[in-house]
Amino acid sequence: MPDEAAPPQSFADKHRKVLLGLLAVMIFLAAWQAAFLVFAFNPLFISKPDLIGRALVTLLQSGDLLRDLAVSAVPFVYGFSAAVVVGVPLGIVMGWRERVSYALDPIMTVFYASPLVALAPLVIVFFGVGVSGKAIIIFVLAVFPFIFNAQAGVRAVDPLLINVVRSMGGSEWDLYRKVIAPGVLPYIVAGARIAVGRGLIGILVGEFFAASEGIGYAIARFGDLFALDKMFACIFAIMVIAVVLTEGIRWAERSAFPWRIGQ
């Protein structure tokens, strides 16, 4: 059972975790593959790891997968950038000025609590199936984590630090550079991690509704065609992207803001 003696986390200990994880994934894949030695295999209903692997290679070689991903990436980048540009300043102002936050907090909470995805059909009908409609859906979903996290970040800044900088004759600029930015940035990056997930939902919603290309469209179409191996391959691609983005941001957090590791 857990580490009563709390041994210093040795190298082998960390290794053990990775090895066990790999082992579990391998067991899972092997069991999936082997299950169809016992059960009848119906390619219209389920797929097998080897078929999925082959489909993935085919999609990669033909360039279809990369093209779909590139198509989906464009609205994602637009929507996400807009979310940062709008959300971060708004959140900082809300954190800094108490009255602004009193006035805006209830509205934001209501927006955040309501499933804004529900407006997607309207947005698509209004803006069409192109880049702008999807970008707007992504923006609407991704902006709130930035607002709330920037706000929380400003609030968490220690007033003592501000006073110290001021007493030592620091300028307003010093205040921002030395106290506020280092305090808020980790929160914003943490917000970005949540926003990435929501942005991916935005892409998929937009493309499931109406699209002629893109990764969400590809998944829906392969499903309609009962091409389950290709569908699984696309799902796998999305999983990899989601994990890389989320864990990448987590890694960046750890290396850029080491003082936050304990939290």
């Binding site: 998929l204 998944i219 829906a220 999305i238 999983m239 989601a242 994990v243 983005l245 989320t246």
Partner: peptide, 9 residues
């Protein structure tokens, strides 16, 4: 990490 919407189809 994966948006579950991906599994919807």
């Amino acid at each position: 990490a994966t948006p579950r919407l991906v599994f919807l189809p």
